[in-house]
Design a protein around this nucleic acid. Structure first.
Lengths: 142, 142
DNA sequence: TATTGTTATACTCTATAACTATA
DNA sequence: TATAGTTATAGAGTATAACAATA
């Protein structure tokens, strides 16, 4: 199944097309908006954080994150707590409803992806993919 | 550098986060809208095609593709030619301006990605990534 | 001055609904 | 009826610009 190695421009092209299609496919699954889900997941994993921290972590502008966090707050999925040491900052925390929402959403939305990974790939291929994700993280995060 | 193998749900989570960040990073590079670029690239590679064909190939609805093709036509980057055998169909073709636009855009937008692949990864890692893309295509395309 | 965060506005991308024209 | 394509409308996601409050 080995193919000719692609040049970097060719590989860049394939990479862009493939991840584009994958993102569209994931987004088609029902569930809460992906940007919101990502924030809930991050707070659940790493604990309360400021809006700027969340923006930097997700690779978006603080203004964009303020919008996302505002939507989550209106839905009752996050709450804000003032930082006593720096009154500019507000810690964004998960509410119980937000935590429940996260778990349900994970089961549904990432559930599709997880099932597809199970169905389409064998264990070795999943390990291959896991290694490749580390490479992609380097490409994206630089 | 081997890590513990992730469970499929964990891998799904990492996959979604990583490709999300990568897409945002690519989109930040200046250039024409990605959806338009993808259509120009496809016609350049596979020749003129109908709107529905393009929609199916890119994994979007025909209505979405009609919008994208309409924008491209207004910009003078594609033209339409009637199919003499079926008057419902219209072949979308590249204009000279569209071809020029494509090549400039590739040099700029995918150029960043190609350079990053060259800089951040070695040849073996790029080969690894190429193989992983085939796996991702299976996940996305199912 | 720098940092945290906001609101206002606009663009990209895609979707669903409702439609016309042709097969 | 089915297919190719359209317009209208809406929502998700992100951006820039301009601003307020705090450090």
């Amino acid at each position: 199944m080995d193919r000719e190695p692609l040049s970097s421009p060719e590989l860049a092209h394939e990479l862009r097309e493939t991840v584009g299609r994958l993102v569209r496919r994931i987004r088609r699954e029902p569930g809460p908006p992906l940007a919101q889900l990502a924030v809930l997941a991050r707070i659940d994993r790493f604990g309360p954080a400021g809006v700027s921290d969340l923006a930097a972590a997700e690779g978006v502008r603080p203004q964009s994150m303020a919008q996302t966090v505002g939507d989550l707050e209106q839905a009752g999925h996050v709450a804000r707590e003032p930082d006593p040491g720096d009154r500019r900052r507000q810690f964004v925390t998960l509410t119980e409803a937000g935590r429940a929402r996260l778990h349900v959403a994970r089961a549904r939305r990432e559930g599709w992806l997880a099932e597809t990974l199970e169905r389409e790939l064998d264990a070795e291929e999943r390990a291959q993919l896991q290694q490749a994700l580390a490479l992609l993280a380097r490409v994206a995060g630089g």
